[in-house]
Write a protein that binds this DNA or RNA. Structure first.
Lengths: 186, 186
DNA sequence: GTCTATAAAACGATAGAC
DNA sequence: GTCTATCGTTTTATAGAC
């Protein structure tokens, strides 16, 4: 058996920043092959298609956020305001570490009207996000108010990413995070 | 002169919903040709390239918003709260009349990291938007606070469009508009 | 004939798939 | 690497108004 140059997991991890920066449709198999150090034909040994690769990339992002970021919202060893600050801080790091913003938001805008293939995983991601923030807000507000505030936070954060992507002004992200935390205190 | 099937302006107007629904890279000249009732080669009598057509489409959107929607923010025959409600109402109509959300936001996410060609017009659009809302908020707040509130409104609205595009829940847009108006009253 | 909006055909390049 | 399809673009031809 020939040596395996890269694992399936490495292909997913190396494809992620390419999709985030170039978008789904504008990313070619050649782009992905270069990023992974593979011949483009070799991809089909790991994945059925570009679409199924993208699904797994989105799944990896969703798992990461669920386990490493949203989980903080339920950490009862921290005060509510500390949880919220930590979640937002990790989120900002995740989207500013490499360029391209939020893959889920990008992909929603690019594909939501064209294919249903990615919708379940994207909806689950945003649902998990809103539920996590709502859990924090619900320590100070009614369940309904907490849910509204959580939805508002998700919108504000995703919207901020659009303006940041265009203008390069990362400060807008920190401003948004500050407002999201302030609303917990009132 | 042979019969002209479409004017230059009609090509722009008929291309707009195609770009909004399919995105820039995923829209082919064949898609645009079908929408305009032309052969794809015939486009090049009106426009140098797909890119220059897109620039003119973005310019048409920008002009429309500037003249028909943002202008309301400066209409002194209306009370501030009335202006804000009217601006948001027109904006919601503009993005829900046909599917696809906000062409400017979509295009920013899709292209901002890949080409600078569309950035000036997109930045001018968002600048005009924030300035318009800031003019309304400044009747109740300091210039700096008004600008922050206007930026926040732009982010919330664009973020809401992402969630609406994915989930189909148009109510999220109305919820966001309600919050944006409420912040003027406080 | 000359001009011009369109159609039709064909170009090289690159797409996703195998 | 090799396939076929399609991409954005260019060229050629045609039809009708001067």
């Amino acid at each position: 058996m020939p040596v395996q140059k890269v694992t399936r997991e490495e292909v997913i991890q190396k494809s992620l920043p390419v999709f985030r920066q170039r978008g789904y449709y504008n990313t070619s198999m050649t782009d992905l092959a270069e990023a992974c150090g593979l011949q483009k034909g070799s991809f089909y040994h790991y994945f059925d298609s570009k679409e199924s690769l993208m699904k797994e990339v989105l799944g990896a992002v969703s798992s990461y956020f669920e386990n490493k970021i949203f989980a903080i919202a339920y950490d009862e060893s921290l005060l509510p305001v500390e949880r919220l600050q930590k979640v937002l801080d990790k989120q900002i790091r995740a989207v500013t570490n490499t360029k391209g913003g939020c893959l889920m938001g990008n992909t929603a805008i690019e594909t939501a009207l064209l294919t249903d293939e990615f919708k379940p995983i994207m909806e689950a991601f945003f649902d998990g996000y809103v539920k996590a923030l709502a859990a924090i807000y619900s320590t100070q507000f009614s369940a309904q108010a907490a849910n509204q505030l959580a939805q508002q936070a998700a919108m504000e954060f995703e919207g901020a990413l659009i303006l940041v992507k265009m203008s390069g002004k990362e400060q807008l992200l920190h401003d948004a995070a500050h407002r999201i935390v302030e609303r917990l205190k009132s």
